[in-house]
Design a protein around this nucleic acid. Structure first.
Length: 756
DNA sequence: CGTGGCATAGTTTTT
DNA sequence: CTATGCCACG
């Protein structure tokens, strides 16, 4: 396994430790994906593990895709059998096979946040609760929290004794689950919850998957919630080969139920755990990393570790404060233009999606191509949801929500009163909404609307017939697969045309309608590529794939564009040049976290800041505005406390009325007096080696003039004693105990140590 | 039954 | 400020 030579000792250790529980604490940019992929390779090629028995879990499809690709490249045979998947798609696959044990049908549909909201609204209405007092939002978050904690309806009710409000919430929870079940639907949290449920209820199914997944790896472990933890723990219980990779400093999803305790207590939970820390960062310049460390070390309750790098110092971190928020946006955009590098090298990050607007406007006015991640998800757009609801109705008439959404879109003259009658009839007869539609003629008092409803039903039936013909035909005939005759794209086109949906949009004639039609075209393209890429394309498979995509997943980096996104979306990504905008107290950290009684709320924000800083490879600029409009009011804010936490000497700062560190213009240079020998910072050429962090050119010396025990001097860390010298493949790796900075490891050629 | 106008609430972050 | 939702009128 020659590729092992390219790993550093710690990485190598992590790769070779294949048996038993393993916790890899991987700092930002320390090459964890590399370790994971090599570990898979090691399992298969060195340990003789059947690829079929390996499971790698990630949080996003994008991460899963990247890992899949790299495993395929690394492993010659059998890589395809390794199961690389997100938590959610793993669970969907399991549930599609075995959910009948829980009383659902295996063609269940998956509800997204919008669907949940609609359903919740109905539930609150049905229970005759005051919608002012019981908001969908807060009810949903209570239920979501419960599910993430694996608290089912009965247990929730038990816990709610004594608290009137909680008892009401228990009613809502129960009714909500009842509706979901009636619709044969699961929400996102259910996917995990029900899978754990399944494993607990049915020992055979659990055993089957325990046998199947003898080696389990989990990425971004710090962001797992209780349900996910339990899922993994159950699966790993039999063989105990569980390897988790994470960084407690990058835990940023507490609001979604992520429990940082899962990583902090891993060693206690899994006795005999081997812990390996990856502390060498290959991504960022020393200045960027120092800034990140300076910020994060203000947090308590973290695993002690210090990220270090052998990379160049790089330019100072820049901080710019502007007057108005639009001036901030303007400043960022002009800075981007002034650097004259590829647009794809830049990312502008912010705390809240609302901030994207100003940046977008400036990009448009300066004609800068940009890619917006997040905000309104493609699949949440009205027209896309409409079409998808047609498809859902065709696939599974039991999804009442979907049917109700489209029954009068486009206008068929079926109004709220008719729909009310259908719902009532369905309730009386114990039918689904759609079944009730089928019987429209027998519903009392329906009148003229009955014919219209029947028209709708026969249209759906017609589509369903065509789809069935395609799905059956496809299995016998390869040509069907590639949309040669009909297929999914054809079905969507027919829906748009035959229902009059397209006509209705065209009739509007507005700019917006045109954009909608284009979006539908994009959906058709998506369907076409699904049909070609998928082994066994079918309608349900398509709906499933579509319901599990996040926005980052769709981020294609082939085009040369500036990336705009939230700090949360940026996790796991890296860019040569990063802007952290809106560095204002009250915005980042958010006022919620500042007001909060719980001091760990601020710590979560700080971790978010740490994530943001460590996305940058070469150049980091933080910006803030003194004034910003929110809810129609101008707010004045102070500079974010996180900025203040960065030592002054690391920052090139400009703010109205204040100057420090002799402003050094766009191409930062840095002051000799502070850092000793100035180094020429040369940004590596854009689009370098894909995937793994940038490394600056290293020339290995033939031999070193110093050895263990010698006193040496370093440009930045001062004097120290050499602890060890390891002759690595590419360079000597030297560990030095500095008098003032503690132990640091570094590459000899980069560190340029001077023997005393 | 559909539309247009007005009132109100809302901002964290998302698989 | 903006998006959504509700109500009243045609």
């Amino acid at each position: 396994m020659e590729m092992i030579d390219t790993l550093n000792p710690k990485q190598r250790e992590a790769v070779l430790h294949t048996e038993g529980p393993l916790l890899i604490l991987a700092g930002a940019g320390s090459g964890k994906t590399r370790v994971l992929t090599h570990r898979v390779a090691c399992l298969i090629e060195e340990r003789g593990v059947n690829p079929w028995n390996i499971l790698a879990i990630t949080f996003t499809n994008k991460a899963a895709g990247e890992m899949r690709e790299r495993v395929d490249r690394l492993v010659k045979a059998g890589a395809g059998s390794v199961w690389v998947s997100t938590f959610h798609s793993l669970c969907v696959r399991i549930l599609r096979r075995f959910i009948e044990y829980l009383g659902y049908e295996n063609n269940f549909t998956i509800y997204d946040a919008d669907d949940q909201k609609m359903l919740m609204k109905q539930v609150i209405k049905n229970l005759n609760l005051d919608p002012k007092q019981y908001r969908e939002r807060s009810m949903m978050s209570i239920i979501s929290k419960a599910k993430n904690e694996l608290i089912g309806t009965e247990e929730f009710r038990k816990n709610s004794q004594g608290d009137w409000n909680l008892r009401k919430a228990a009613d809502v929870y129960e009714a909500y689950q009842g509706e979901l079940k009636k619709n044969n639907a699961l929400d996102f949290d259910d996917l995990i919850f029900k899978t754990v449920d399944l494993f607990r209820v049915n020992g055979e199914v659990l055993d089957y998957y325990q046998e199947r997944f003898r080696y389990i790896m989990v990425d971004e472990y710090q962001d797992t919630n209780t349900a996910q933890f339990e899922l993994i723990a159950l699966l790993a219980r039999k063989y105990g080969n569980l390897c988790v990779v994470g960084d407690d400093d990058q835990s940023i999803y507490k609001f979604r139920g992520a429990d940082i305790g899962n990583i902090l207590n891993f060693e206690e939970t899994f006795p005999g755990t081997k812990v390996i820390k990856l502390e060498q960062n290959y991504r960022s310049t020393a200045h960027i990393l120092d800034a990140a460390n300076a910020v994060i070390c203000n947090n308590r309750g973290r695993k002690q570790k210090t990220l270090w790098t052998a990379n160049e110092e790089g330019p100072l971190v820049m901080f710019r404060q502007y007057g108005q928020a639009f001036e901030e946006a303007e400043g960022v955009i002009q800075d981007i233009l002034a650097q004259g590098r590829s647009y794809r090298d830049f990312a502008v990050l912010y705390r809240t999606n609302a901030q994207s607007r100003l940046m977008e406007e400036k990009c448009i006015s300066y004609n800068i191509p940009y890619r917006l991640v997040g905000g309104v998800n493609f699949y949440q757009r009205k027209e896309i949801k409409d079409i998808l609801c047609y498809l859902k109705t065709i696939a599974n008439g039991r999804d009442d929500l979907a049917v109700q959404r489209i029954i009068n879109v486009p206008k068929r003259g079926i109004g709220t009163s008719s729909i009310g009658k259908i719902v009532a009839w369905a309730g009386e007869q114990g039918l689904s909404f759609y079944q009730s539609c089928v019987q429209a003629a027998s519903i009392p008092g329906m009148g003229k609307a009955a014919g219209k409803i029947q028209g709708f039903v026969s249209q759906i039936e017609d589509f369903a017939r065509r789809n069935q013909a395609w799905e059956l035909g496809m299995q016998e005939d390869e040509a069907f697969k590639t949309n040669g005759r009909y297929g999914l794209p054809g079905l969507i086109r027919d829906i748009v045309e035959e229902t009059g949906y397209g006509k209705e949009l065209e009739a509007e004639g507005e700019e917006e309608a045109k954009a909608r039609l284009e979006n539908i075209d994009e959906l058709i393209n998506k369907a076409a590529s699904y049909c070609t890429d998928s082994e066994n394309p079918n309608l349900n498979g398509f709906l499933e794939e579509v319901s599990l995509v996040a926005d980052v997943d769709r981020m294609d980096d082939s085009e040369d564009r500036v990336t705009l996104m939230t700090l949360h979306s940026a996790k796991g990504l890296e860019f040569p040049v990063v802007y952290l905008s809106g560095m204002e107290d009250g915005l980042f950290p958010s006022s919620m976290s500042i007001m909060s009684e719980d001091p760990t709320d601020i710590e979560e924000e700080r971790r978010l800041c740490y994530v943001g800083i460590t996305r940058a490879r070469e150049r980091l600029t933080m910006t803030a505005a003194q004034m910003r409009m929110t809810k129609g009011e101008t707010h004045y804010s102070k500079v974010s406390r996180f900025v203040e936490e960065i030592p002054q000497e690391l920052v090139d700062l400009i703010r109205p009325g204040v100057r420090a560190n002799a402003y050094a213009s766009q191409t930062a240079k840095y002051t000799e007096k502070q850092f000793g020998t100035p180094k020429q910072f040369k940004p590596a050429a854009g689009g370098g080696t894909p995937g793994f962090g940038r490394e600056f050119t290293i020339k290995k010396a033939a031999a070193l003039e110093y050895g263990a025990g010698d006193r040496v001097r370093h440009g930045r860390f001062g004097e120290g004693t050499v602890q060890s010298v390891v002759d690595g493949a590419r360079d000597f790796e030297v560990a030095v105990e500095f008098d003032r900075y503690g132990v640091k490891k570094m590459f000899a050629s980069v560190a340029k140590l001077e023997k005393l």
